[in-house]
Design a protein around this nucleic acid. Sequence first.
RNA 1: GGCCCCGUCGUCUAGCCUGGUCCAGGACACCACCCUUUCACGGUGGUGACAUGGGUUCGAAUCCCAUCGGGGUCACCA
Length: 660
Amino acid sequence: MARPATSSDGVPFRPMSTSPVITRFAPSPTGHLHIGGARTALFCWAFARRTGGRFMLRIEDTDAARSSDESARGIMEDLAWLGIEWDDGPRFTTADGRVIAANARPIDGGYFQARRVPIYNRELERLVRTGRAYPAFEGAEELEAKRKAAVAAKVTYRYERPADVKPGEFNAARWERACKGEPHVVRFVAPFEEIVVHDRVLGDVTNAPGELDDIVIRKADGFPTYHFAVVVDDEAMGVTHVLRAQEHLANTPRHVAMQKALGYRTPVYGHMPLIFNMDGTKMGKRDRDKAAKKFYRERLGDSPPNPDAMAYLMEQWVNKSNLAEPTKHARMSIVGQAISYFAYESRNDLRKFKPAEIVAQVWPSLAQGSKPVYESHLRKFQKLLEGTSSGKFAQWLRDASLQLDPEHVDCLADALDVILPEVEVSHFRANGYSPEAICNFLALLGWNPGIKTSDGKDLEKFNMKFLAENFSIERIGKTNAKFDRVKLASFNGDYLASLSDAEYAARLTAWLNEFEPEAGAKIAALGARLPILVAVTKPRAKTLRDTLRAAGFVLRADDSTDFDAAAVEKNLKANDGQGLALLREFRERLAACEPFDPAALHALMDAFVKEKALANPGPIAQAVRVAVAGVPVTPGIGETLAILGKESTLARIDRCMSVV
RNA sequence: GGCCCCGUCGUCUAGCCUGGUCCAGGACACCACCCUUUCACGGUGGUGACAUGGGUUCGAAUCCCAUCGGGGUCACCA
């Protein structure tokens, strides 16, 4: 097949073949969408778009024990969020009301495999009656023992075909036993012949005769295995091109053999390189568990949590929310009291731990608006206790091979205020990555447009439309890739920077409302000063979450600034208190400054610097910075003060002068 | 271990099919300098790779072979 030229008029290329391309992404709904799965979906989507074909989503829920509707929904949400929309598959309504797969091709039995069991059974019986499959009655334990023995003896384990099974001959005796209800699985009779897979990415992959053994195609619970369901469905749903990860390459000869036995067509295959962590390990949830363990040990040692550790974790949360309680001491006291209340009243029965009651009893005078916040912290605290109070936690801390419940891992990370390595699409989303940047980056992992820009650089930045118009299987690479989160962050930062201030503000607000509602409320309260914050944080942010850190001084209440001791020494007290003296004087200028906007404030400072004959604005700028933020790092000083507003600025400077 | 796949800067890659224009280009990261009131942004420059060994050829990152290295897979999971 000749490589089609890129159409200059944007009209999608259509193949000469009469059958339009149909690709599919077929996740198993046993968890969230993995970033590697997202890339597979993206490539399948892009190829379908490029060729004017259809992209299908099929839910492979034949593992009854592990599959869940919730997971399937989550995967669809993640795909929709990324902008990877399926033409065929379950109908899905996105959060913003778009309907995906509204015009899906009607498929007999639908797109959930668990509901297609009669179809698999019909095809399976055809195989059995033509002697290409047979019921097998060995128990799982029996086979497991054989396998272990083989491994111990360092021999390759293969399932041995029973002597009474003859290829091509219907084994009525076995079928009868199976039909009578004897527990069994059904196995496929592997043909003794060379099988060549014509892979569009890797070239021809040849398997010698006898390499295949008789795999299970229907489990004892009556569900087909993946191998069988895939083959039946790809045919039934007209799939023409299968793009999947290379980990499936070894399965493909079996699939081809089954297609032949069933008289099916063989789709075009393309196996894509795998994606790993930077250290070469597989990207998985364990990475998060490991990272959380490491962070905990760094902060709190290898002892299980005691009241001190709990107090520390609660303090992290409380500090993050920067509540307007009088003092840090007072903030901590509610934490301490909550812990004792918990220990005394509940006697470690977590069901008796009622955040709302604690807030009401321990701190009746709490400001109305703070109550829900404290309650939410206490709820997280409760969940954390769930995860850490059992003996399991102590073991987990010491044993690198043990894992905590992922929910508790997330909770622990939240308490420690650390970012765990992202491995699922939802993690990237929660950490403030944009779908555009993720798709762009993912597209470059194993694929490359091979186009130079006018200044001779490789074309790397592009959008979904470009992908839909330029994607090609022949430019998929063969070598495994490592997932460089640093480069992704750079792409994300560039993407955010390319947004207009208004767009950025909209995204930021939406993200805050979803993932950091407390901070979101405070930032929304900025009102007319929000655009200044946006303008100043946008170039500093690799992710939306970065903005939260850059805007930390805004979130903090005027009277809850913690002054960094080194900064106070260097910028306020050094040189006989030069900074403090300048600050005192400059405070009065600020009080009189009108309007209180960045330009006026910069002008005010420039004039002050000139008047005081300072070599540069450093002494006063840094003094003000430390006074209002507690730290020597903030955006431009004029912007910083303007965002705070005159009232807060003066209050903070006054408090600083009285406290330090 | 059997079978299969892969091997260009630390990482993602262009170049390989159609050997010379490649003492190998770009991006991220890193380093230096510039800009600068801090942190960023931005600008300029730099360090840095054809896994190794044999062939073939006037000439090899590009073709062939071997070695080494990495990975996948060997489930009643997908």
